[in-house]
Computed example of a mutant assay.
Amino acid sequence: MPPTDASANAGTAPVTDAGTTSPTAHESRIGPAADAGADSEDTLDLHLPDEFVALFAEDTGADGSRSLGATATAGQASASATSAVTVEGTGTGTGTGTGTGTGTGACAPENPPASTTPNPDDLLGDVADWGPVNTPAGALHLVPVRIERDLPIISRWMNDPAVTAFWGLAGPENAIEEHLRSQLVGDGRSVPCMGLLEGTPMSYWEIYRADLDPLARHYPARPHDTGVHLLIGGIRDRGRGIGGTLLRAVADLALDKRPACARVVAEPDIRNTPSVAAFLTAGFRFSAEIDLPAKRAALMIRDRSLRHLL
């Protein structure tokens, strides 16, 4: 899991493996004919009743054209109707859903259902459409990162000594580009964003599905938990309490835009006192100390049920 902070911390990259499902083949078996003797002929001399033959009698029109009899046509229509499969389903709109299906007929549909590969927009919703949102510090807009536009400024921020201690991403641009691109080409469970305050880039964010992240191995995750990481990039914006203001706005934005999400979580380094204080100011509660691969972290949680009290 990537770092989390108002001036932030290091972690592991989000998971990108997706499961696959394989359809199960259903076999139809026909047993041998009853009472077939050793001297049976290969071809049976089958005599159909006259009534059965009448069902498939062909009508000859005045112009010499032929068509199936009315009874056969009706039977064909009935067979077509009963072989159709109707499926009804409901989904949460955030990447998981439940469905019920009903079907009639003795055969499966010709074309099997499409693969259930996750839709990137379903895991977090379209973060690009979340903002802007008004805050006491001004209008904040989260804009998904574009490598060619944003890499130079993000690289500069990550190489700031005050940031390096917690994010651990200092280095050449290509290393930071790899960190960004791994999220951008993933399945949508983590979205790196630039934070624009009144139109000016001043922060870097990662909005991610905490329940689908390695973080979930270290705390009692709940479905649709949304994680947030924050780096205040501009030096002039640090140390004046703006982190808590922006964190509250983005956490509430996630709760507003993701109805299935009951909690926003974060895991700043326990040593990063200003970061922990910023989350407390933003209405997060301290839940526990947890040991992560790269740090000991403070698990911070903003609950939907408590958002108007904290």
Rank of each mutant, 00 (worst) to 15 (best):
R156E: 15
E110T: 15
I147W: 04
F166W: 14
D150L: 05
H141S: 10
S182R: 09
D126P: 07
I147Y: 05
A128H: 08
V163G: 00
C107T: 11
E173K: 04
P136W: 09
R181Q: 08
T102Q: 12
W167M: 00
E110N: 10
H179T: 10
R156K: 12
E178L: 11
T104G: 09
S155T: 14
T102K: 11
P120H: 07
P161S: 09
N119I: 10
G99S: 12
L180K: 00
D126L: 07
G101I: 12
E110G: 13
A108E: 09
G125Y: 04
V143P: 00
V145E: 05
W167E: 00
V163N: 00
N134D: 14
T100Y: 03
R156Y: 03
V163R: 00
S155N: 11
T116G: 12
P112R: 07
G105R: 01
E110M: 13
A106R: 14
A128G: 14
L142D: 03
E177Y: 01
P172M: 03
I154W: 01
G125F: 07
T102W: 02
L169Q: 03
P132V: 08
R146Q: 15
G171L: 02
Q183S: 12
E110W: 13
A106V: 13
A128M: 08
G97A: 13
N111A: 11
P120L: 09
N119T: 09
G97W: 06
D122V: 05
G101Q: 07
G131V: 07
R181K: 09
R156C: 04
T135Q: 05
L184E: 03
G103R: 15
P112V: 05
A114P: 06
Q183R: 15
G95W: 01
E178S: 10
F166K: 02
E177C: 02
G131I: 05
S182D: 09
G99P: 01
P132K: 06
N159G: 01
T102D: 11
N111Q: 12
I153N: 00
T100C: 02
T96E: 12
D160V: 01
S155V: 04
N134I: 07
T104V: 11
